[in-house]
Nucleic acid binder design. Structure first.
Lengths: 160, 160
DNA sequence: TTGACTAATGCACTTCCATTGCATTCGTTT
DNA sequence: AAACGAATGCAATGGAAGTGCATTAGTCAA
């Protein structure tokens, strides 16, 4: 499969990573999650892993010279379905994606972390150490999932 | 202005309301909120007031035979800007709108209520009595607004 | 009451993004 | 090496947000 990666190597080198070693790790990880480790998937995973904040599909698209939006769309979707990535709706209109932490159980609402969306720089980050507090809901309702987004200014934008 | 309302009367009558009386109330209310009480605005407000749950722009559009999406879009926007309506992002992708309760202070994050989005019937309702608990955010971050959506089954869908 | 000014509306677009169908290519398995 | 299923790329569709502009309505003042 490495022959396929050659067109992308320049991209990775630009980021200064020794891709061969990490590729291998990612490849193993994807396989362990029952996701076939194709070239694109490894690269997209790589990109997500580098990021501190969540990114949109368009973001991802712009990071790759040669890429088809559909493929990226389906790649991310596959990741999401297999629990590698969670989708964040921060109110900006377009969904963003971030890698799940190890042991992240995005489905179980007790384990959910909250997200912070900066109104100035538009960055959305997962505050993984900050869990969502206990929520009371009315009788008869069944909670399956909780989404909590705090909007405001992030630490970098809140300097002045 | 009532001559303008004539085309819409059939619509209102279909709902069995004595619109003349309520029109008047709505008219006064809009004026008190510094929103010019035009025909369309009164009708849109009327529609929102009838609803128990939040609705999308497309929802509103479909309720009116004769309507232009742009006008509805701007009407709702005006309502939002003047604190008559708040926008809810329930994760379904399209924003929904609901009338603010009397004294609702959507801007002040301490006063925010939470929203419930039903995964089955796709209805989104404001749980106005259920306030958002205290949230801790990291040092350096400034919270301006909090959006909390619980997904699951509403009381009507959670029967079996 | 009329004229003038501002706000609201309707129409025609544009733009953005999600999503799908289908043909092709890749990779794995036998 | 053949065959099969999965992944990809291209083209196209569709839904909704948002904008520009001309027209119309409503208000205010003379």
């Amino acid at each position: 499969m490495f022959k396929l990666l050659l067109p992308y190597l320049c991209f990775l080198h630009a980021y200064g990573f020794n891709c061969y070693v990490l590729m291998n790790d990612i490849e193993k990880f994807l396989t362990s999650k029952k996701v076939r480790p194709t070239a694109m998937r490894i690269l997209v995973f790589r990109l997500l892993a580098q990021r501190q904040t969540a990114i949109t599909l368009t973001n991802i698209e712009n990071r790759f010279e040669k890429s088809d939006r559909t493929t990226l769309y389906r790649t991310v979707k596959t990741f999401e379905e297999n629990g590698l990535v969670h989708r964040i709706n921060d109110g900006s209109g377009v969904p963003k994606y971030a890698l799940c932490e190890e042991g992240c159980e995005c489905d179980i609402h007790n384990d959910l972390h909250l997200h912070f969306h900066c109104n100035r720089c538009d960055e959305t980050s997962c505050l993984t150490e900050h869990k969502i507090p206990q929520i009371n809901i009315p009788k008869g309702y069944l909670a399956e999932d909780i989404n909590l987004v705090v909007n405001g200014l992030c630490d970098r934008c809140n300097v002045d």
